[in-house]
Design a protein around this nucleic acid. Structure first.
Lengths: 126, 126, 126, 126
DNA sequence: GTGGTCTAGACCACA
DNA sequence: GTGGTCTAGACCACA
């Protein structure tokens, strides 16, 4: 788990993002136990309260659940998480494309850029 | 000028965005005078310090320049602004597309989504 | 015996509730033997300490009694248990009704709701 | 605002309840400003972090919203809050009544109890 | 050991 | 002044 201490994004939000990514990537699956608050705190050299805050918010969002005295675990609605993330990203995509079109970029040039990006992505996967 | 007070984005950054958009859209052109700090502050019901901060940062970025006692004016390097904005948006585009590909979306489905968005955009422009 | 591990109510309290309900429902009668701590712990996949804590509290409340080396048994003061439970429920009823009245609900609408609930209950019993 | 320090209910939850009640009672209306974190903390003799936690959760629940550098304010969806509360209370009512019926109480005796409570409530309002 | 609550106190961005 | 973040450290219930 990577934390960028110089980032403007609060540490607890970075932790939340990291946890979500682990789940989205399939590394952590439904009902898997997360590292304990204290353990993760020590591993990252961060105050336990900060981890606690991240876990709390994740619980609020339904991404994880915690059992007192037992630990924190991945919720079972992973597909929901994935769907939400997808919708959010498509929304961002739409906004970015619209802004680009409102600049002086022709649709053809834009499509060319998109193809370049998509190709780059596929090379990594090959 | 629209300000979303409930947004997480600081008001002064929203003002900066708004000013840039006015310039990019061609509403404000090189050497045009911007509304004065006090006028804009009153119009938006915002603390003048906040407007001042936005104007200061815009001057720092070279988007506007100010003449003591005269007011603030649009810089003449609009094309540079446009180019920066374009590069920034293309960067965002790349990030979003990469994240989408790392999900379970096929490249074909993704391209279909893109075409849908591009079509919607062009209809508005016709 | 049903335990909701995700509930905010401690497991040991849930066990206590379950035991009381078994007695109130007449499934377990005076001087009947309860499942042993170890047996119940294994059956529910729970730490024996947790069962022990529940049984201890139940003994403290006079609901059960235990004979060293023999096991735990239902006390004979069932009617007392029932009376306590009734008083507690009537107290809750009063609180809930008062809170509802303090909202914008008319007394008539509230009585209609009550009748609906009471009817539903009686249908199940017919 | 009353806090019961001896209660098992966490202080921050008591604060949340109090705020909700003030809103439900119509004392605090949409877009009214709440006491600031520091002010309330001093008034109650409680650590500001605890107030912050309460306000944070209320914001998560959509009951209030906060503007950085300005303060915390009542959300405008009061009717939603009221509706939620009502549904929750009716749910509790149903559970309590069902439990009472499952005891040895006759429906007639139960209705008599209910009438007694409702009358008491109306006397207070007369 | 594990999560949850709370205090004391510091520092930051923003208005 | 106002909310937001973070640390250090303590204590609690629960398993």
């Amino acid at each position: 788990m990577q934390i960028d201490y110089k980032s403007r994004i609060p540490i607890y939000e970075q932790i939340m993002q990291n946890v979500k990514n682990m789940i989205l990537a399939g590394v952590w699956k439904a009902d898997d136990q997360l590292p304990s608050v204290r353990q993760l705190a020590q591993e990252l050299g961060i105050n336990p309260n900060t981890i606690q805050k991240a876990y709390n918010e994740l619980e609020w969002q339904g991404v994880i659940y915690s059992l007192r005295g037992r630990g924190s675990f991945v919720s079972s609605n992973q597909s929901e998480l994935q769907e939400k993330k997808k919708q959010q990203l498509l929304g961002e995509l739409e906004n970015t494309l619209k802004e680009l079109l409102s600049l002086d970029i022709s649709k053809e040039a834009l499509e060319a850029e998109i193809q370049k990006i998509l190709k780059k992505g596929s090379e990594q996967n090959d």
